[in-house]
Design a protein around this nucleic acid. Structure first.
Length: 147
DNA sequence: GCCAACGTTGGC
DNA sequence: GCCAACGTTGGC
C-alpha cells in the first residue's frame, strides 16, 4: 500500500492511537476492489512511501478491519468527498491497517527494480500507478530477505 | 463504443 | 518542475 510520507507516513501510523488507521481516500476502482474483496483480517501489507526523496518499502502493516465504506466520500466538507457515492450504495471502500514494524532501512524502488526475481512485481512494472497492489508470497519473502 | 481532452500519479 | 503513463469524462 502506497502513501506519500508528507501526507501519512509509517511513522504517523506508528504514533497514532492504537497504531491503527483507516486507509481512506482511495479513489481508484482496482485498488478499491482489492480493499473491498481481497484483503482479509490479519493479512500483512508492505507500507510504501511514494512521491518523496527515496521512494521504497519502509515497513509492514496488518489488516485489522476488512473492507467497509469510506465515509470521507460521503462528507461534503472532506477533501476526498465524492458526490456520486451515497450511504445506501457506497462507491468507495477502505480497510483499517495497524502498524507492525518499520524496517531497519528503506528498501528503495531503485533496488527493487534491479532484482530479476521481482520483474513481475506490480510495483516495478512500467507505468504502474495503483496505490494498492498485490504481492505474491514468493515476492513477499524475497523482499523480506533484502532487509 | 470510440476517442480526444483533461486530470492525476509519481519517478526523476 | 518535467513529463510519461494512465484513468476518467463526456461529446458524438
Amino acid at each position: 500500500m502506497k502513501s506519500e510520507p508528507g501526507e501519512f507516513s509509517i511513522d504517523d501510523l506508528q504514533q497514532c492511537a492504537h497504531q491503527t488507521e483507516p486507509w481512506d481516500g482511495v479513489r481508484n476502482y482496482q485498488a478499491r476492489n482489492m480493499m473491498r474483496d481481497k484483503m482479509k483480517m490479519g493479512d500483512l501489507v508492505f507500507f510504501y512511501h511514494s512521491n518523496c526523496d527515496k521512494p521504497g518499502i519502509v515497513g509492514i502493516a496488518r489488516i485489522v478491519k476488512e473492507g467497509y465504506p469510506d465515509d470521507t466520500a460521503l462528507d461534503p466538507n472532506h477533501h476526498h468527498f465524492d458526490p456520486r457515492s451515497d450511504p445506501v450504495r457506497p462507491r468507495w471502500f477502505m480497510v483499517d491497517v495497524q502498524f507492525v514494524r518499520k524496517f531497519t532501512r528503506t528498501i528503495a524502488l531503485t533496488e527493487l527494480k534491479e532484482c530479476p526475481s521481482l520483474e513481475n512485481l506490480a510495483l516495478t512494472r512500467r507505468g504502474n500507478r495503483l496505490s494498492v497492489m498485490p504481492v505474491s508470497e514468493a515476492q513477499w519473502n524475497f523482499i523480506l530477505s533484502l532487509e
